[in-house]
């Protein structure tokens, strides 16, 4: 959207850039409220079943979750570097950093897939023939876990598509204001931040 110069109804490019950035931030605020519902549900579940919640969280693969946190944070760093590179006029560096972010994001999804597969084998995936839970609270926790991380994974996938689109877009790479790359990076940071909250809510809760 940003690269084509000034568009209706704007008269000045600077004003249009401010508007696009503001629009992105408002959209992200909306996304935060979306995940707020998941966190509210997790909080209620934990308050009502303190012991069962911790037990159920203990079954998650903590080290996979931790690795994924590192991967996603690094990916976010790449996105931030891409913005900086574009602002400095280093279009090629910007593209490299973006592809780095895409690669790490893909690694995140791969690890998540491995984790899901393990949970499927253990019979912890809801709605499958092999499903068997130790108790109702564990079932409830795992359901919430799948909804929360699943919704997050959808956002990751969408973010990856945006990052790739930005990396492929020559105009975006050469834009010294890094409008498109900046907005995509903002979105990617939000995806990261949501994970940074999901990680303690789901994984760290099981650490004794």
């Amino acid at each position: 959207m940003a690269e084509g110069g000034v568009q209706e109804p704007f008269a000045r490019a600077a004003r249009q850039r401010e508007a696009e950035r503001l629009g992105m931030l408002i959209f992200l605020a909306s996304e935060v409220m979306l995940f707020g519902g998941i966190f509210a549900a997790a909080l209620a579940l934990r308050l009502e079943h303190p012991a069962g919640y911790v037990d159920a969280a203990h079954h998650l693969k903590l080290w996979l979750g931790t690795a994924n946190t590192g991967v996603l944070l690094t990916s976010s760093l790449c996105a931030a570097l891409a913005v900086q590179a574009a602002r400095n006029g280093q279009a090629r560096w910007a593209a490299c950093a973006l592809w780095g972010a895409v690669a790490l994001g893909t690694v995140f999804l791969a690890i998540k897939g491995v984790e899901y597969a393990g949970e499927y084998r253990e019979g912890l995936m809801p709605g499958m023939a092999t499903t068997h839970f130790e108790g109702r609270t564990q079932q409830l926790f795992m359901n919430l876990y799948f909804i929360g991380t699943g919704l997050h994974a959808v956002h990751v996938t969408f973010g990856l598509a945006l990052l790739a689109a930005a990396a492929l877009n020559r105009g975006a790479r050469q834009d010294r204001h890094a409008m498109l790359i900046g907005n995509v990076a903002l979105y990617w940071h939000l995806v990261d931040v949501i994970w940074v909250f999901l990680y303690p809510t789901l994984y760290l809760a099981g650490v004794r």
Partner: peptide, 16 residues
Amino acid sequence: IGIGVFDPRLGGDPLL
């Protein structure tokens, strides 16, 4: 799929 967050039979909370 019966995730149960609002279902008391799974320990969920309809008031939530």
